[in-house]
Each structure stands twice: as structure tokens, then as C-alpha cells.
């Protein structure tokens, strides 16, 4: 019952946010987007690079056992580019960007800056929250895309330089297995996850209580709910794009 009520309140919050979109502070949005992108890029690249290397080593070992190591490029595209790299990138974005966002907004709540904005007649939704939600939505596809490229690149480096797979064959197989539909699906998922990160982070920050634990709790709730809801949305979108529904 309580959970249902908070889902309702969260939805109303999002609808209110979309309504003020025309009046949103654009400059703040760009500023925030830049700092979100720079703040999250390094973690995302580092973790996807390691994931790419890991997947390559694992894939190579299994495929060699079947006697088909030349399929490595295809394997990386199907497993890595479609699911693993985006998932890893999403994890980094949720953990870094989502928690930082929730903590930032929650600090403004506990420090009464949000109340102060309201009393000054400045709508926090227009000048603080919507810019952050929008920035997160726009920045996530960019970060996820770069993460996927980085994972793929790292995979290529390990496959060709360390494992001795023929570069021409690896890249041909890899690129052959990426279809426009994968790109459309990836972009849709990234936009959805970005919007979810921005809105959950802002919501938990905005509704943070007062007291010393409020900020940590907001960040924690954001990351946990992002993982669960994010995985669910990912599954639904995968069904939509690959399950024959589309």
C-alpha cells in the first residue's frame, strides 16, 4: 500500500517535471550535463575495458574447445555489444551518476536550500531538478555508447595482440553481427535508463528526510531501485526488440 502510494507520488513528480520542460533552465542543463559526462566517463571506460578483456579471454577459451576460435568476433558482438557492455556501463552510470545526483539533491533538502528556492519564488523543478533529469537522460546514451566502443576496442586488442586471432577475421565477424536493430535497441535502453537514473536520483533527493542519515539513504535507495527497475526495463525492451514483438 505504501509502496503503491510512493509509485503514484513518483509518477506525479515525473509528470510535473515533463510539464515544466518548456520553462526548464537550459544553461543549467548543459552545465550539469557536461559535469555529469566528465565525472562518469573514466569509471565507465575503465570498467567496460576490463569487461571486454575478460569476455574475450573467456570466449576464446570456450570457442577453442569447440574448435571455432575464429567466431570470437561474433561472440563479442552478440554477448558483449548487445548485453554485457551496456549492462556494465549502466551499472557504472547508476552507481556513480545516480548516487551523486541523489546525494546532491538530498543535501540541498537537508540544508533547506530547496525550501529557500521555493520561498524565493524560484521553482526547483525548473531550475534544479528538470535540468538534472534531462542531463542524465542525454548523457547516458553517450556514456553507454562510449563504454560499448571501449569494451569492443579492448576486446579487439586482447583478441588480436594477445590471443593471436586474425584482426581482419575478428573485426569482420564482429561488425557483421551488429545490426541497425542493435543500435536502435541500445539507444532506446540507454535513454530509458538515463531518464530513470535522473528521475529516481532527483526524486529520492527531493523527498529526503532531515537528519544525518537522509543523504546516504537517498543515494542508497536510488542505486538499489535503479538496479531492480533498470533490469526489469531492460528485460522488457529486450523482449520488445528481439522477442519477435517488433
Amino acid at each position: 500500500m505504501d509502496a503503491l502510494a510512493s509509485v503514484g507520488a513518483f509518477s506525479r513528480f515525473c509528470v510535473r517535471g515533463v510539464r515544466v520542460l518548456p520553462r526548464m533552465d537550459r544553461r543549467e542543463t548543459l552545465d550539469v550535463a557536461a559535469s555529469m559526462a566528465f565525472g562518469t566517463l573514466l569509471v565507465t571506460l575503465a570498467v567496460t575495458a576490463f569487461a571486454g578483456a575478460m569476455l574475450t579471454v573467456q570466449g576464446f577459451a570456450s570457442l577453442k574447445a569447440f574448435g571455432t576460435p575464429e567466431l570470437l568476433g561474433m561472440f563479442i558482438s552478440l554477448a558483449g555489444v548487445r548485453e554485457v557492455f551496456p549492462l556494465i556501463a549502466a551499472g557504472c552510470i547508476g552507481a556513480k551518476l545516480g548516487s551523486a545526483l541523489a546525494a546532491e539533491v538530498a543535501t540541498l533538502r537537508t540544508g533547506q536550500q530547496l525550501d529557500a528556492l521555493e520561498v524565493m519564488g524560484i521553482e526547483p523543478l525548473e531550475h534544479l531538478l528538470m535540468p538534472r533529469m534531462t542531463a542524465a537522460t542525454l548523457v547516458t546514451p553517450l556514456l553507454a555508447g562510449l563504454g560499448v566502443l571501449c569494451g569492443l576496442g579492448a576486446s579487439g586488442v586482447i583478441a588480436t595482440l594477445q590471443l593471436g586471432v586474425d584482426p581482419g577475421a575478428f573485426w569482420a565477424r564482429a561488425l557483421d553481427s551488429i545490426h541497425p536493430r542493435d543500435i536502435a535497441a541500445g539507444l532506446t535502453k540507454a535513454l530509458a535508463f538515463g531518464a530513470l537514473t535522473g528521475s529516481l536520483g532527483c526524486w529520492h533527493g527531493y523527498t529526503a528526510g532531515s537528519g544525518p542519515w537522509a543523504v546516504g539513504r537517498a543515494a542508497n535507495l536510488t542505486v538499489v531501485q535503479l538496479m531492480v527497475v533498470g533490469a526489469l526495463v531492460n528485460l522488457l525492451l529486450s523482449h520488445l526488440f528481439y522477442g519477435g514483438l517488433l
Partner: peptide, 22 residues
């Protein structure tokens, strides 16, 4: 309504407990 409220609030200045500065 929200817009009228925002306008009314310009009649107020408020000092918060710890200043609520940015």
C-alpha cells in the same frame, strides 16, 4: 495556484536555520 504562489512569495524574505546558502 503554483504560479500565483510563486508570485506571492516575492513579498517574503526568509532566513533559514543555517542560512541555506548554496
Amino acid at each position: 495556484g503554483r504560479a500565483e504562489l510563486m508570485r506571492l512569495r516575492r513579498k517574503f524574505g526568509m532566513l533559514f536555520q543555517d542560512g541555506a546558502l548554496f
